[in-house]
Amino acid sequence: MSKINLTLKVWRQKNGREKGGFETYTAKDIDTDMSFLEMLDVVNEQLTHEGKEPIAFDHDCREGVCGMCGAVINGQAHGPLKGTTLCQLHMRNFRNGETLVIEPWRSRGFPILKDLVVDRSAFDRIIAAGGYISVKTGQAPDAHAVPVRKEDSDTAFDAAACIGCGACVAACPNASAMLFTAAKVSHLSHLPQGQVEAPERVIKMVEQMDKERFGNCSNEYECEAACPKEISVEHIARMNSEYRQAKWKAKH
């Protein structure tokens, strides 16, 4: 167990209306076994004792699955490690004396609420637009009524592993939400149960995504690199194809 000292430059912003800026703090005697969020906890305890307001940051499960946490560390969403959420990033990945610039996700689609906390309700609206199979409770046939190819089921799972953290948007040079949207489109359309509504779904979801004022995809694949669940951009290609076909084949 070793200890390191760090300089933190943290984005502080009182709320969505006021302007924000960087504040510098020192994090002393940070145990390298700590997670990044535990390091922030320690800094926050220290700030509280100094009579300052602690840094607001979203977090919940702290085991990489709820999708609540996330910040950009030195320009990288969720920090330097691949396939990792901020809560699973440990301080042994940083060097003694390092300066860390900590910023919120930055996108017009994710307005800042306070400090590192952003409003990701746009993602909920994209799902609400069509990210489901419209089956009501009680309508389902027996689970074995329709076999599903294992390969399709596995691919569907790969896409369904999305935790909705928003790192794809944060990392995209254009703040585009294509990977998030495509993951849901592709998850459902890979399953026979999801194919009935697939054309309507992709159209509605893409249109809602556009309404939320995210940027456009320019195939730079930074989303895939930042995704803590390493969801492939192949799902984006699939959505592009589904959208094109749905639009051109529609009868009216």
Binding site: I133, A140, P141, A143, A156
Partner: peptide
């Protein structure tokens, strides 16, 4: 049992065998 039926219908990607069954 109804829960499993419902979830499969919703598109929950449960683990499957090569035959396509759960």
């Amino acid at each position: 049992g109804n829960i499993i039926d419902q979830c499969v219908a919703q598109g929950v990607p449960f683990a499957r065998e090569y035959a396509g069954y759960l």
